[in-house]
Design a protein around this nucleic acid. Structure first.
Length: 500
RNA sequence: GGCCCGGUAGCUCAGUUGGUCAGAGCAGCGGACUCAUAAUCCGUCAGACGCAGGUUCGAGUCCUGCCCGGGCUACCA
């Protein structure tokens, strides 16, 4: 089955930071897992490059918006391979093909009668040449930047008849209780819809850094509408000569941060309805990463976790593991270098890495590196029963943290199993060779099954261990605990997660 | 103000439809073992499950009120 998943696209008016990495990694875990299930996966990410902030920043730097966008888009794009993110395409909203398709879709919205020319009225700062939002205005209606008095002004805009979709959106929320996840966000979005919808402006006339409105070329589309459409337009040109739209649309998952909830859970489905396009199955809203002190990360507080520092110190898999493990996906959570160290040493090095080391070492020492081809221990098999299915169910619900916890319970179980059976004692008694065979075969099988499931989270390390075990099948089906030892001759493996 | 989440051992949190539900991990303390990256394993400590009522044979688990923390309450992207 087709499985289409996206991250939000990053706004290029800034540098990539941990938040971008977090979202990309979480989405990548789901995408990789789905590929392990032989789903026909398409994973999209990219950059959002239009709008006033980019135009303004470019002006400040004395370059054209396109030059600025090119520079910054390259930085975002370069981040992905560093994180081992396996996106299938990287869309830029400045792509010509994107422009063309945005115009196509919104033309249809226009033709269907869901737009009209109206007046946007708001508080305007003549120095900023920009309207200010209600909650950013200082007391006395003053500009937050210039602190000068704002004037009440109007601008002629094209409007989108969001209000016309109130009923259909309510219906969507009634029929798809998992349209927005987790539940708190669903409630939030639904409450917003229920409270009554106003029309929203669809175009801007004061600015030209955007996609031209085809029926009124003096306007460009409001950046959000252009940006949201990336999820749809990308499928049209990601594979030159092959339109993937029918194959993948609508998306299974849009993974986003809570700050852009409204755009994705209200505006976006309404716009798709207006264009007569199917709406996505799920919008998953993740939380924010906080400083180790639980406060919002900020340079002045000095509580920022630098992803590149983690990558340098511990590596890509460690960063991926840490973020998926330590912060419940869907909630906010504190992160810090100390916590990274604890998870790395206690779990990746001591529990998983060392489990691999001791297992391989015993195979080498007691059986010349060969996994005995004997029946595995039903007691250990029992501990793995249902694991892969449970992981599958949790990932279906985007519960990447919960799934990892289940996997990790079995990592611990394997270490306990080693102690229970004490293979080094069995090795001293030739009469108990059969028992030792069983224990070693079972342990090899255990770390193999675990590594298959861990491929989505720590792809490089899991793969290294599987290679050492001569086990190349990474499909989720292969995560079932086998009834017999593989008979493979394993190879030596340097510590997967060396301690410093 | 209204609405939505949450408030469970020192810390981070699990606890499905009410009846071994009082748990896990980390931290602390004690012990065992040696295959392993001095890794691992076992035991142990503590908690009136935010407060007060209520429903029930029985409630972290349902109802009401209150307290505390967080979020949303529209056009910054």
């Amino acid at each position: 089955m087709a499985f289409y998943i996206t991250t939000a696209i990053s706004y290029v008016n800034g540098a990539p930071h941990l938040g971008h990495a977090y979202e990309a990694i979480a989405t990548d875990v789901i995408a990789r897992h789905m590929r392990q299930r032989n789903e026909d996966v398409f994973f999209l990410t990219g950059t959002d490059e239009h709008g006033e902030p980019v135009a303004d920043a470019a002006k400040d730097q004395g370059v054209t918006p396109q030059v600025l966008a090119d520079e910054n888009a390259a930085r975002f794009r370069a981040l992905l391979p560093q994180l081992d993110v396996s996106n299938d395409f990287f869309i830029r909203t400045t792509d010509a093909e994107h422009h063309r398709r945005v115009q196509e879709v919104l033309r249809r919205v226009h033709d269907n009668g869901f737009t009209y020319k109206g007046l946007y009225e708001g508080w305007y700062c003549p120095k900023c040449a920009d309207f200010k939002v209600e909650n950013e205005i200082l007391d006395g209606n003053r500009c937050p930047i210039h602190e000068i008095a704002l004037t009440r002004e109007q601008e002629e805009n094209w409007f989108f008849r969001l209000s016309a979709f109130q009923g259909r959106l309510e219906q969507l929320y009634a029929e798809q209780p998992a349209f927005v996840m987790p539940l708190q966000r669903f409630n939030e979005a639904r409450a917003f819809v229920t409270s009554g919808l106003q029309d929203v402006s669809l175009s801007r006339a004061r600015m030209n850094w955007g996609v031209t409105v085809p029926w009124d070329p003096s306007h460009v589309f409001y950046v959000w509408f252009d940006a949201l459409l990336n999820y749809y337009t990308a499928l049209g040109y990601a594979r030159p000569g092959d339109d993937l739209t029918d194959r993948y649309w609508p998306a299974n998952f849009h993974v986003i941060g809570k700050d852009i909830l409204k755009f994705h859970t209200v505006f976006w489905p309404a716009m798709l309805m207006a264009a007569e396009l199917p709406t996505p199955a799920h919008v998953f809203v993740h939380g924010f990463l906080l400083g180790a002190d639980g406060r919002k990360m900020s340079k002045s507080l000095g509580n920022v976790l630098d992803p590149f520092e983690v990558l340098d110190e511990f590596g890509t898999d460690a960063l991926r593991f840490y973020l998926m493990r330590d912060v419940q996906f869907g909630s906010d959570g504190p992160v810090g270098m100390e916590q990274v160290t604890v998870r790395y040493e206690a779990e990746l090095a001591n529990e998983y890495g060392n489990l691999a080391s001791r297992t391989l070492a015993m195979l080498q020492r007691y059986r010349d590196g060969r996994v005995p081809e004997v029946d595995t221990d039903p007691a250990l098999a029992e501990s793995f029963a249902g694991l892969a299915d449970d992981v599958v169910d949790l990932i279906d619900a985007a519960e990447v943290t919960g799934a990892l916890e289940l996997i990790w319970q079995r990592v611990r179980r394997c270490n306990r199993y080693v102690e229970e059976r004490a293979p080094w004692q069995l090795a001293r008694d030739p009469e108990r060779a059969a028992e030792l065979d069983q224990v070693l075969a079972s342990l090899a099988e255990g770390i193999r099954a675990l590594s298959v499931l861990l491929c989505a989270y720590i792809p490089v390390s899991a793969r290294r261990l599987l290679d050492a075990l001569r086990a190349d099948d990474t499909r989720v089906e292969a995560a079932a605990f086998a009834a017999r030892g593989s008979g493979a001759t394993v190879s030596a493996l340097a510590p997967l997660f060396p301690k410093r």
